[in-house]
Structure formats: structure tokens, C-alpha cells
Design a protein around this nucleic acid. Sequence first.
DNA 1: GTTTAATTCAAACGTTTGTTTAGTTTTGTG
DNA 2: CACAAAACTAAACAAACGTTTGAATTAAAC
Lengths: 208, 208
Amino acid sequence: MSADKRDHILMVAEKLFGEKGFDGTSVRDIAQQAQVNLAMISYYFGSKEKLLESLLEMRANYTILEALNKDETLSPWQKVDRVIEFYVDKIMRNLCFHNIMQQGNQAQSEEIREYITNIKLKNFEQLKEIILDGQKKQIFRNVDIEMTVGSFMGTISQITLARHFYSKLFAIDINDDAAYIETMTGKLKKHLKQLLHAHLVIRNEELN
Amino acid sequence: MSADKRDHILMVAEKLFGEKGFDGTSVRDIAQQAQVNLAMISYYFGSKEKLLESLLEMRANYTILEALNKDETLSPWQKVDRVIEFYVDKIMRNLCFHNIMQQGNQAQSEEIREYITNIKLKNFEQLKEIILDGQKKQIFRNVDIEMTVGSFMGTISQITLARHFYSKLFAIDINDDAAYIETMTGKLKKHLKQLLHAHLVIRNEELN
DNA sequence: GTTTAATTCAAACGTTTGTTTAGTTTTGTG
DNA sequence: CACAAAACTAAACAAACGTTTGAATTAAAC
């Protein structure tokens, strides 16, 4: 089994699933775009749905910032900044895959829905620990952690999911991937740092 | 043309499109759920795509808070609070439709993508004006308005889009719509008020 | 070089898709 | 009641779907 060709199909499928949705993409679309014979997809993956599962497995290491969390030399503020850098970079580098993750709710297959939910839960736990740590050290306010993480992920998702909207808003060519990624990565990082700092910081008037 | 039956089909379609996506929903699904003959959908709407267009038109008045914006007796802070109340209530009351709006990016039809983008632009303009007004009156900080609105909408969208995730997180029965809406509406409003207040308020140390 | 296994392919499979047809029933009007 | 328009239906349509087949080609092993 040629790993090259398999990976190539996976990448084409990722792009199409991310852009047109799983149900909006036919295996013939994938085969044509990847320039492989239609039957190759069943041959390599078994079925369209198992192709999606393979895709999810390939990106399953979507959460690898445990090291960051364990680093005792970093202050909670530094951790927050690094998480923002890390996540924004990672998601903007994988726009299509992130869209697939967001569509997971509609998946007909319960197995896939579970799989995606679990990846999200892992990511959530990482972020939760960082905020919890800051709260224990009385550096962060007593914010609603679930909702705070929701705002963090939601802000990023908005940029990846509503690309047509933001392209129009910032007058970026809808087909210019590089321009969108560069523009939005910068804006996202700066904004999220400001937003989360303001949200988490213990203000003077609260100290009394 | 029976408006009752037409509306009934629209509501069933809204639910299915919102839950399973446009491409994941067949006209036979809709006909069966709505308990109408398959041909009635073409008869009333012309096609599946025009059914979606009718759905969008029906909810086109999705933005009706101009009155709020023009109300000179309200302070920017009051406006922000009211917008939060308004939007959260409205979106949580129309979970499925909001999901359809979020999926719009994947729509094959450019007409539909444009339509949805324009609705979003209208909503954005309303929110932008409120923040701009507060900034002019030097009550709000000089935040990035586009990104701030992005966080606002993104936070809400996260709740509607990643329902499986949040149901699991808060141990809410995945089929209990009422419980989800009630729980999340409260959490959302409280969190968004806190978040936006912290983000927009001019802090003491910045006044010097 | 021969044999065996892995890969590729065009073609066809049976379903499901969105839509249309042609005929029936119901409704509203004079 | 008569009759035209509207509403509704079961059946069929062609196209697209995911998947499988069986033969052809290539690669690997001995």
C-alpha cells in the first residue's frame, strides 16, 4: 500500500470535506481531484466514512500541549499567551480540518460524533487546567471556565467557519488562502490576548 | 396554497437542515417528517434549494434591533447588555436556523452564500455601531471592533454548533432541547456580559 | 524467469437522490 | 349542481451516489 498515494487522497479529502462538507463531497469528487481511480478509495480505506475516520486518526494528535501545561517555569499569563499562539497557529494551518471538526455535530455516524467530541474534550481539559492553575494562584479572576474556553474556541472557529463573511469584511480575495491566513492570524492573536487578559485579570477595585 | 402546510414543511426542513445539514437531509426525510407527500415540496417550493431560500427569506428579519440602536436614552453599557439579552434569546430560540446560517459557507449555491453573508453583515453593522458609539463617547476602550463582534458571535455559535460537546460537558441529555436551551441561555448571558464588560471598560491605569 | 501478491482500472452494481408526470381528490365560485 | 382551479397522490424518471467486480497491470519474492 503506497503511503504516498494514501496520504495524498487523505489531504484532498480533507480539503473537500472542509470546504463542502462531508455529505456535500462525493467520492468521485475526491478521486477526480486526487487524480486516482474511483475504486482506489474503497481499496485504501474501505468506505467514504472510514476515509473520514482515517482522516480523524491522522490528525488525532491534534492536542499536544501537555508539555506546556507541566512547565512550572511559566507563569499563568505566559501560558495563556503561549496557548493562544499555539492554537491560532495550529488551527490556521489546518483550516479545513478544523471545519471538519466543527461539522462533526451533523455526522450521521455516532462513532464519528463521539470521536470528535472526545478530541474537543481533551483540548478543553488542557485549557481548563491552565485557567484553574491561574485561579488557584489568585492571579486569574473567578471566571466561568467552560464559557471562557467557549469564547476562546468560538472566536477562532468563527474565523475559520465564516470565511466568506470575513473575507468580504476585510476585502480579502476569497480564493487567496495565504492572504486570509496571514491577515487573520495576526488579528486573532492580538485580539485574543487582549480579550483574555481583560477577562482574567483581577482588577484593582476588586482587591479591596 | 395552504400557508399552514407550507409553514409546517418549512419548520420541519429547518429542523432537519439544522441538525443534519442541507446535504445530509433528503427531501424524502422532510416529506416523511412533515407527513406530506414527497411531491408537495416541489409543488410548494419548486426545489430543495428554493426551499432553503424560502427558509432564509422567512427568517430574513433576523436583524431587527435598529430601534435599540437609535434609542438615545440608553447608555452604551445598557445597549451592550440589551444586545446580549436580545441575541442570546433570539439565537437560542432558533438553534436550528442559526446552525443553517453557520453552515452557509459550504453551500454549493453562490446565491445562498451571498444571502447568508449579507444577513451576517447587517447584524455586524448593528453591533459595530453600538461599540463605535461607546468609543466615541470615550466610555469603551479602543478595541478591534471586528474581532470583538467575532468573539461575541463566535461564543454563541460555539454553543449552538458544538451541542454534543457541551451536552456532555454539562451532563445534559442530548435529546432534551428545553434543558439545553435553559442551561446555556443563562450561562451565555452572564458570561458574555462579564466578558464584554471587562473587554470594553476603560481601566483606571489607562486613564493617566 | 516464473510465480505470487499487490495495485490499478473501466465497467457495472444496486440504492438513493431530486424532480416530474399523469391522474385523482378536494375546494371554491357562479 | 356544474365546473374550473387548486391541492394532493402514487408512480416513475434520469442522474448521482457509494461500492463491488473481474480483468489487466505492476511489483516483489524466490
